[in-house]
Design a protein around this nucleic acid. Structure first.
Lengths: 214, 214
DNA sequence: TCAATATTGGACTCAATAGTCCTGTGTACG
DNA sequence: CGTACACAGGACTATTGAGTCCAATATTGA
């Protein structure tokens, strides 16, 4: 939206203030990823960011405002990552590399914590309407990135033009999110890997045999 | 596990006591579904079930124990529902009816609250190891019910025998769970409906044209 | 360098919530 | 029919966590 990352500051901030603000949000995001939003106290954030209560309330009206800043922060991170990984994909092989990268990252933590965005969404959606809408838009952005990659693959000719890639993109994102949840519950990447693989297999089955490109 | 529903009681209970216990768990489950676990206080449960604090602590050692009883309760409900809906499915049409029923129910609440089991899983998995494992087993049961339906479809001949239905089942469950999450975030069933439809389309694409049965 | 203002520290308040305890009442069985 | 014990009520405590306040310090611009 505006030049500085993470939401508009409401108050005028010097460079030092911005750094402090960023430090708070980054620390809060880390804690909330691991402990959840409800499990993270403002005192936790204080200690982790090395900042005092009054600063917290100088920068954020209340905890909800901090949570929203965290949503923005995490959202920017995820969108940047996905833009990086999907932005130039135009082949099935490219999509498989995308899959590998996500699976590998999740395997390192044995499925713990699930998807950074998905966990926030599930915890916040029925409680904070503003944050819910922010997350909805982030999911839509993510879905669009997948859709655009699919559309590029389609344009190479391996995928029939009659296929609605935007519906496929919803399917991919849902498989991924559901996979994250199952992996988190099982403490094992496997269900997440399988879920995305099945979605990829579907895409492959749609590529008419003996078509152009790879 | 044992005859009475919802976990073992640790203490001896008369019929009246069992009813009280059930009332507590049912009230807690309802509240937690709407407000989340963290958002539901024991006082809320007290008021909703018309029961006093000491009774709560007579029946449950602490809040975690109550949460686990809720998991068992909700799990039994979901497994019963899915057994009902999937237990006799042996055609694609039957699977579509299953989809319709889930989508319809979710549409009524505009996606709110997500999946009863999924929401619990996401809130509890990184916090209570015992509850996490219970939920993992419930998801496995659910997945098995889907797998068995797919296997029956496979046995009618419309689905090639070389296909691994258990992997497909993981894909279905993940699509469903991810769809629930996206629907909850969007306050709209649509993403959930699309996610399951894409999964169904995949299955249909696997049914070799010109095979037996319907 | 001085004054205005941004920034910081942390003690303090107030409300909410998990968990305890004790007293009284219903009930089942000998 | 009475005694033991299961069950119910609700006041009470201890803790935690969100949010406030004000005094002290750093920064910036004139």
């Amino acid at each position: 939206m505006n030049a500085n990352s993470d939401e508009s500051p409401a108050i005028r901030l010097t460079a030092r203030g911005m750094r402090t603000r960023t430090r708070i949000v980054a620390a809060a995001a880390d804690l909330m990823r691991v402990q959840g939003i409800g499990g993270t106290t403002l005192d936790d954030v204080m200690v982790a960011s090395g900042v005092s209560k009054s600063q917290l309330y100088r920068h954020f009206e209340d905890k909800d405002a901090l949570v929203r800043a965290v949503v923005t922060h995490v959202g920017e991170f995820v969108v940047a990552r996905e833009t990086n990984m999907l932005g130039k994909v135009s082949t099935l092989a490219g999509l498989r590399r995308w899959r590998d990268s996500l699976v590998k990252a999740n395997a390192l933590r044995h499925g713990m914590y699930g998807c950074a965005l998905g966990s926030l969404a599930s915890e916040v959606s029925d409680h904070d309407a503003v944050a819910r809408q922010m997350l909805d838009e982030l999911f839509q952005t993510w879905q669009r990135l997948i859709d655009e990659a699919l559309a590029r693959i389609q344009r190479t000719g391996v995928l029939d033009e009659s296929i609605d890639t935007s519906r496929l993109a919803v399917g991919f994102l849902a498989s991924l999110q559901g996979g994250y949840l199952l992996a988190q519950t099982a403490r094992d990447v496997e269900p997440m890997a399988i879920a995305v693989d099945v979605a990829l297999a579907h895409l492959e089955s749609l590529t008419a045999p003996g078509r152009a490109a790879s």
